[in-house]
C-alpha cells in the first residue's frame, strides 16, 4: 500500500458486509495524494451511477455534479500545511474508504461550553459503495464513520479540548449524530445552508467511547 512518508498509521477494523466478517484496515492521520487519486479513480465512477439515476429521473444535465471532486481537491490543497487543520482517512483493501477534515480554530456554541475550543468536523464522508442510501443495497464496509469520529475525539483530547466536537450534519445523517453518536442538536444553522449543527461535550465524548468498550 503506497502512502507518503510521515503519515502515522493506526490499525482499525471495518465490517465487510458481503463477507460477513471484520477485516483489517488502516487509519491514516492525513489525506494524501493516494487518497485523492482514489477519490478520482474509485469514488467518481460510483458517483456516475448516481448521475445515471438522475438522468433516468429527468434531472437536467446542468444540475449534474460536473466538477464536485475538483472543489474537494481544492479544499485539501487549501489547508495543506496549515496547523489548524488535521485530516484523517481510512484505507482498506488498497482503497480509500472514508475521509475526514477537521478545523481546530473554531469555538463552541453550546451554552455549557460556550467559546471553548473544539475540534470542528469540516467534512466527513465515506466512499459511495459504503453508503446504502446511495447505492440502494447493502454497503461494502460499515463502521468507518464511528472510527473517524473516535479519531476526532482523540484529536480533541490531544489538543486539550477534552473531546469537544462540533459539526454540521447532512439531513440524512442527523439520526447518526443525535442518536448513535450522542451529540447535542443545536438546531438548523441559517448561515450554513440550513444544516443542523451538533456539538459534543467531554462527557458525551466519553460516553461515545464507552459505547464500544466491553461491558
Amino acid at each position: 500500500m503506497s502512502k507518503e512518508e510521515n503519515v502515522e498509521v493506526s490499525e482499525v477494523y471495518l465490517f465487510d458486509n458481503p463477507e460477513n466478517a471484520f477485516v483489517e484496515a488502516e487509519l491514516w492521520d492525513a489525506i494524501t495524494e493516494k487518497n485523492l487519486a482514489d477519490w478520482e479513480a474509485d469514488w467518481i465512477p460510483h458517483l456516475f451511477k448516481l448521475l445515471k439515476s438522475l438522468k433516468q429521473k429527468g434531472v437536467v444535465r446542468k444540475l449534474w455534479p460536473q466538477s464536485r471532486h475538483w472543489h474537494w481537491s481544492d479544499k485539501v490543497k487549501d489547508i495543506e500545511g496549515k496547523l489548524s487543520n488535521q485530516c484523517f482517512s481510512i484505507v482498506c483493501d488498497s482503497s480509500t474508504q472514508a475521509m475526514l477534515i477537521t478545523d481546530l480554530a473554531r469555538r463552541s456554541q453550546l451554552d455549557v461550553q460556550k467559546h471553548s475550543h473544539l475540534v470542528y468536523v469540516d467534512f466527513i464522508e465515506v466512499a459511495p459503495w459504503n453508503r446504502k442510501e446511495l447505492i440502494g443495497h447493502s454497503p461494502k464496509y460499515s463502521g468507518a464513520g464511528s472510527i473517524l469520529i473516535r479519531a476526532a475525539i482523540e484529536l480533541s483530547k490531544q489538543e486539550g479540548f477534552r473531546g469537544r466536537l462540533g459539526l454540521h450534519s447532512l439531513p440524512q445523517a442527523n439520526d447518526f449524530y443525535e442518536n448513535k453518536v450522542g451529540m447535542t442538536d443545536l438546531g438548523l444553522d441559517k448561515n450554513y445552508q440550513n444544516l443542523r449543527y451538533f456539538e459534543m461535550t467531554p462527557e458525551q465524548a466519553d460516553e461515545f467511547v464507552m459505547k464500544g468498550e466491553d461491558s
Binding site: 453508503r131 472510527i147 445523517a173 464500544g212
Partner: peptide, 27 residues
C-alpha cells in the same frame, strides 16, 4: 498521530453504526 482503538471497539461500533449515513459538512 497514533490512535489506539481495539478490534473489539471497532466491531461493536461497526454493528452499532450499521448502514447509517454519516456525511457532514458542505463538501
Amino acid at each position: 498521530m497514533k490512535i489506539n482503538v481495539t478490534k473489539a471497539w471497532c466491531e461493536k461500533m461497526a454493528r452499532r453504526e450499521a448502514y447509517a449515513e454519516v456525511g457532514a459538512g458542505l463538501l
